[in-house]
Design a protein around this nucleic acid. Structure first.
Lengths: 230, 230
DNA sequence: TGGAATTTGTTCGTATGTATC
DNA sequence: CGATACATACGAACAAATTCC
């Protein structure tokens, strides 16, 4: 067996047996290089196989991650309780990104966790007759200790969370007009500088602790999003 | 020869021949990149070699520095303003140690710098007819941004500092009888447990900020050190 | 005091040349 | 010749620390 296949097999095995957990960070290419005492090229060939099999995700400038196994269906279930009613066709939802990353100061504060703790960072794009909605969903990994994405296929996120550490008691909403980032503008197909209508949904438990955050962004010039203040 | 080694050689040569002076700032990675018209990766590989050889120091968020060399003559000049008058023969001064180390909590507090910031830690032994004096001198690296040891050969440290970030306005002295460490006793050739006469000189700037500390230790049983309170 | 700019630290993406089998 | 493996080199994105205004 060739070197890169051996390494592929070894890492794959570690993912299967849980040494490298679903969604967690893998050692960087540099570390793997040292660990196996081979060239970076060889490591990359091994990782390449895993990426093709969707077992590993690469994030430029960030690192390697074991694929978290979040399907489109999961996302819809997870966001079900706040899903706008005008979305009739789930087929129009496209995941742009779904990975684990380290929390920075910002999210560390929001969730009252430590910097560098892992959070899910999921972004997707919803296309409907009303236009496009760019959504970002942030969930701290630690708040879902036994988190099993498969479960989400049959259980709404609210129930999944309630079997975990925290319970969703309230959702706090904030409405803003903002100027989007380049990425926002690109996703929404709007010009730089155009106003964006942003809704922030913050999920709170019974101690008013933030346990999840969702951002929804639409072009403010085109949006027909209506809020029910009942 | 490979590119990064060529660049390494060139920079190394410039350090040796004084183009880049000891302790001075090196061009940033970005500037070197332009200068040699190579990628940052390559520059970093070259610098990496110099760092490993302790010829260059990296300071995150600040820049690159040529590793400062401290000679015996420097030390004498640097400590000139507080050098006891009874030292007639500089030949009797012997450097025991001169290196950069990371500040711990103690010196971080004294100098109001962060833990792990670099400080000069210089110790030397003065032998005279009056006996031996064991001296430790601590200087934070950051307080001497353009620090050039060559200059110290012709300029007293007080003037060198006054061209830098801080000015020496005052020296605070403290006198103690202490029990020395094993190292102190060995350096002073005295028995364990013998009392040691310790003088701490703390240099202050006009905001009473500590910018240097010097400890002098002599055997209390033999010392004839006299203080002039003029 | 707070945000912009600068600078090093870390990591992945890509390409090329060389050697070996 | 082609697959494998190593080393080198250029880029790009993101992170973190520091400095400057």
């Amino acid at each position: 067996m060739t070197l890169f296949k051996e390494i592929y097999t070894d890492i794959n095995q570690k993912i299967i047996n849980g040494t490298y957990k679903r969604g967690s960070v893998l050692p960087s290419e540099g570390e793997l290089q040292k660990k196996y005492a081979v060239s970076r090229t060889t490591i990359r060939k091994s990782i390449e196989l895993l990426v093709r099999e969707k077992k590993v995700i690469r994030k430029k400038g960030v690192g390697l991650f074991v694929y978290p196994e979040i399907s489109k269906q999961n996302i819809l279930d997870m966001t079900g309780i706040i899903r706008p009613s005008y979305i009739e066709e789930p087929e129009n939802t496209k995941i742009k990104d779904a990975y684990l990353r380290k929390a920075g100061v910002y999210y560390a504060n929001i969730f009252d966790i430590k910097v560098n703790e892992l959070i899910y960072y999921i972004s997707f794009l919803i296309t409907s007759s009303e236009g496009k909605t760019y959504v970002k969903l942030i969930l701290p990994l630690d708040f879902f200790p036994g988190f099993d994405p498969h479960m989400l296929k049959v259980t709404p996120i609210i129930e999944a969370i309630n079997t975990g550490l925290y319970r969703v008691i309230d959702v706090y909403q904030e409405f803003q007009l903002i100027e989007g980032t380049d990425e926002d503008n690109r996703q929404l197909n709007i010009a730089s500088g155009d106003p964006i209508f942003k809704i922030t949904n913050t999920f709170l438990d019974d101690y008013d602790k933030n346990i999840a955050v969702e951002y929804k962004m639409q072009s403010a010039l085109q949006t027909k999003y209506s809020i029910n203040f009942d």
